[in-house]
Design a protein around this nucleic acid. Structure first.
Lengths: 191, 191, 191, 191
DNA sequence: GATGAATGAGCGTTCATTCAT
DNA sequence: GATGAATGAACGCTCATTCAT
């Protein structure tokens, strides 16, 4: 088993347990047991628990972002781009319930706040796909003149809530409903 | 000091500390200290920590619901009723940052899931109002034909996210922006 | 059992174990077991392990100092005062092997250095009995003109080493030998 | 690099780290890193940590003893021999602060006791010289009639304490003060 | 021979809960 | 009823040692 394998085992075990039981319900000992490694081994790959939690986020976020960037309709109208993203988010997280749960846990923890803050006050050159959309929408005046953070709230919040409801069994999102959701979000931000 | 007073002191102390420091950052000893009671006294009023956390939620939720019911425009058009609720939520939680923080913590903890499940199944409290709104909207065909849970997601999610952004300093919600937010939500659900 | 009793139990258990097994050979769990209290109880009386170690020192040092101050020949010649102290140290630590061992451990740990530093650079009004002796000896020119720290080294070091040899069985200090030791130390510092 | 080189690298790295950070502050991993060898390699040369600690002592002690034996004034008066040894100790350890620190750590650890016991029982190394000195002093009646261990305590203890004070900055030992120290020690043992 | 990844027992400390007063 | 001292299981983390390569 290669070094990368073991690291991945830990990442997966931790992600699963954090998703299923919350950050506080998953002690390091349980993670190591599930990963099939010794308790101390985790610390060869991650300096401490906090770093592990952050690294899971980073890993998942990269994977998620790559998914959204696939077949992204560069150069096409803002509306079309938005639909790509909205439906992309739904598709991805419908298929990945654990990642979705992890994501929810993460963004409602102290870790999540900091990440969000960095994202919204982004001074690094990182190209956030949604941020770019917002700027283009403003430029072409196809979306309402609102602060960027609020753009996120209106356009994205319902999507995440709907996915959560799907996983909790309150609704069943198929292609048609996915279309309805994203379309409704678009209605709330378009001029 | 009456029995009720002491119970309230505990509820308030616990709510504040949970809101400020998270569930994990507020040990029972600190709660009892802040409430001005002995550590053991908490257990006379609440069977254990989990029950305390649940009771705080119930208490806050009742208070919040009552706020929304005040001057509720019964019999008026769905749109007007929705604006009453939407702006009511914003007003309330802008003024009550601690309660908002508590609410967020709560709904993203294991406790939260169960409550939500009951909420959508039973029809009590807040949902009486919103449920009624949904049904009336369906009947008069002024809102899109979507499942009730999705109605929630579209209409309410952005409001909570926006309030969170307000408290975290990413946006500043004044009356005008409040109007914009609720209006945008309405755009996403109206026919 | 009073509060003070339990605190004393912990202090004694810890002192004994530290003396017998060294700081590193005495885990908190063993201390609590020997003290007959729960593991967490120690932390009601001492913030942490380091504080416990310091408090033992303080307690022992006060007791020891009080012993030396008994029947101290105030106003009598420096030589007589020195003999009182020298023989007092020997008497005390011959009778208290555990306290002696603790003292040795302590003074050769990082804790000990700090204490010694404070003592030698003393700006607090604390009346150290040996320090006073040094100053009087200098004033009356009955001891060699040497730095204070060296006075300690010459006058006190052999006494502690001799007591250690006594406890380790290399010598047997009786009254006569005690007299010899202190007298020899005096020979090394007197003019 | 020969076998001996690697062994020496480990000894030096370990000695330095133990001296600087104490036995408990220097994990094997850090030692191996500093020595430029793999973690497991240490165990090819030393059965375990305790053995490593003991071997460092032995090595340093041999080196130290050889230093004292250099230009030893065999056949000259006891006083002269004593001055050679006393000043030799001071010179050596003033120049070798790390070795001195290591020595102090060692002798106040559980390891130290056993070694000292053997030292006073057997007659090897340093003690050859000092033992000889003691016996000659007794024979010619130039030093007080005291047990050998006590001879050590009176003659050597102040020297070690003074060197410690030098390294800790409480005194500054130059040639004159070195003379004073050894001379004072002599005063305490001579007839 | 040499390596360093892996181990897991053991550490200091916390805190929800109990119960004698 | 009210208290808060006492508990001990549980936690995150370290590190001496092993052993497959």
């Amino acid at each position: 088993m290669s070094k990368t394998d073991k690291r991945n085992d830990i990442l997966n075990a931790a992600m699963t347990l954090f998703a299923e039981q919350g950050f506080h319900g998953a002690p390091m000992a349980q993670i190591s047991e599930r990963a099939g490694v010794g308790a101390g081994t985790i610390y060869r790959y991650f300096k401490n628990r906090d770093v592990l939690i952050m690294e899971i986020h980073t890993t998942l976020f990269d994977k998620f972002t790559n998914h959204l960037k696939e077949r992204y309709p560069h150069g096409r109208p803002v509306r079309e781009c938005f639909f790509h993203i909205g439906k992309g988010i739904i598709d991805y997280f419908i298929k990945q319930p654990l990642e979705f749960r992890y994501n929810e846990q993460f963004h409602h923890s102290p870790y999540g706040l900091e990440v969000r803050r960095n994202k919204l006050t982004n001074t690094t050159g990182e190209h956030d796909i949604v941020l770019e959309l917002y700027e283009k929408g403003m430029e072409y005046q196809v979306i309402k003149p609102i602060p960027m953070a609020l753009f996120f709230d209106l356009a994205i919040a319902p999507i995440f809530w709907a996915v959560r409801d799907h996983h909790q069994g309150f609704i069943k999102i198929d292609n048609a409903l996915s279309e309805t959701i994203v379309s409704s979000c678009w209605d709330s931000i378009r001029i």
